[in-house]
Nucleic acid binder design. Structure first.
Lengths: 230, 230
DNA sequence: CTACGTATAATTGTATACACTTATACGTAG
DNA sequence: CTACGTATAAGTGTATACAATTATACGTAG
């Protein structure tokens, strides 16, 4: 990966296909399309004012993301995302973010470490002022820095995917002030472990960080946004 | 997921698009297309005797799998898979297979447990006879059973993806007899932990299992199949 | 000889047309 | 009334046509 290419979006948001992809994705995650609902190429194309071609290409991508499943010659059906899915992802993430923090400790550059430090202290400031928007961005960025610092293209991609997947949930939980201050504190612990060059500690703190986000989610239900499945 | 739908392939192998997808994927993983090589829609279409449409759809999927990256209005470029990528995946897998074994212990059905037991003992038999083909299939199936048993759609999909990704490597390492017998023994340990209802033990054994496969790979180089990147 | 700009070619993006498969409606036999 | 079969409609799969963008070649000014 690299210095340029600041944020390589897998799907360009400006092409028709990209817009269609993001729109459908959003509509599935937001619950507009219900579980098992059939998505028809022409209907969606008409709605967005495009032909079937970009819609079909978007479908192929959504299928690989697991948001829809396509039965050949039949149709595309929404797979949706349940409460259990989100929880499972958090458990998987807790392990992989741990690994990421460990590797980041061993590979982080001076610049990345500095940005991380800045991020942590800036977040403290915005938390005090109760600015949720900035906090969400800083939180995003903190994890992004770790992903970049771990020096593993595969792990980076994986965690980005997860991160994206549960983005809606994260936005919601971070808007609760108590969680965001706790989250900041945990970021600080991770940062300090990385700075002191202690991979095992960094791993432990990052794992704990995701787990406590998970606990928070479990406590607060998240029933409205997703179908309950258990 | 379910009783029916024994093996839901994400991309149907019989449609043109599916065939194109698998062909290009294979060609990238086998090294036919070099790193950063540009893939042109018409060229590939002509080679496979199809039009651009299925090729384009296959490209979109390959992009999401991370095997190629597409620059809008420019082209599709091979991302390839390096030795480090494979190693990183093994590290990630070791954690997630551990989690999978833990969850499988808590959710496995009687039938799945029976099939697993049968699998382990059958593998012992074929190992003694040195039948590598059957061994590879049994190994695949052992992990498949765990994926199904863990009762997590998300984790199942993730591990299948990883599994697929490094399939070529696994085939190769399993053809070495000493590794395959060691692998069998480890499967047996995992199975016994699951059967005895000890999630922590199952997790530990599954993690160790993937790690030892990783060690084996590191020892044996795997230089020929993939570009070295470190 | 180099640098720049324009014309041309090559390639991707999107829309449309046609082929093929699957679903639906309706009529008829029993 | 039900079961079956055929005709029709709807929808996906693929190919092709056209538009937009990017790369290349070549000529000209300096």
């Amino acid at each position: 990966m690299g210095k340029y290419n600041v944020k390589q979006e897998v799907t360009d948001k400006f092409s028709l296909r990209g817009r269609v992809f993001h729109k459908i994705r959003e509509d599935i995650l937001s619950g507009k399309y219900k579980d098992n609902e059939e998505l028809k190429e022409v209907a969606i194309g008409d709605e967005l004012g495009v032909s079937r071609t970009p819609v079909r290409e978007a479908f192929r991508q959504l299928e690989l993301e697991g948001l829809i499943h396509i039965i050949p010659n039949k149709g595309a059906y929404v797979t949706g995302i349940t409460v259990k899915d989100v929880k499972d992802i958090y458990m998987m993430r807790s392990l992989l973010e741990g690994l990421c923090a460990k590797w980041a400790t061993e590979n982080i550059t001076k610049e990345q470490l500095e940005e991380m430090e800045e991020n942590v202290y800036l977040a403290e400031f915005h938390a005090a002022k109760g600015n949720t928007q900035q906090l969400a961005e800083l939180d995003n960025r903190f994890h992004e820095i770790m992903y970049e610092a771990c020096n593993s293209k595969m792990l980076e991609k994986q965690l980005r995917d997860f991160h994206d997947y549960v983005l809606r949930v994260r936005k919601k939980t971070l808007s609760q002030n108590q969680r965001s201050t706790a989250s900041n504190k945990e970021h600080k612990f991770i940062f300090e472990a990385i700075k002191s060059g202690d991979p095992a500690k960094a791993e432990e703190e990052a794992t704990k960080h995701v787990l406590s986000a998970y606990e928070n989610i479990v406590k607060n239900g998240l029933h409205e946004a997703y179908g309950s499945d258990e």
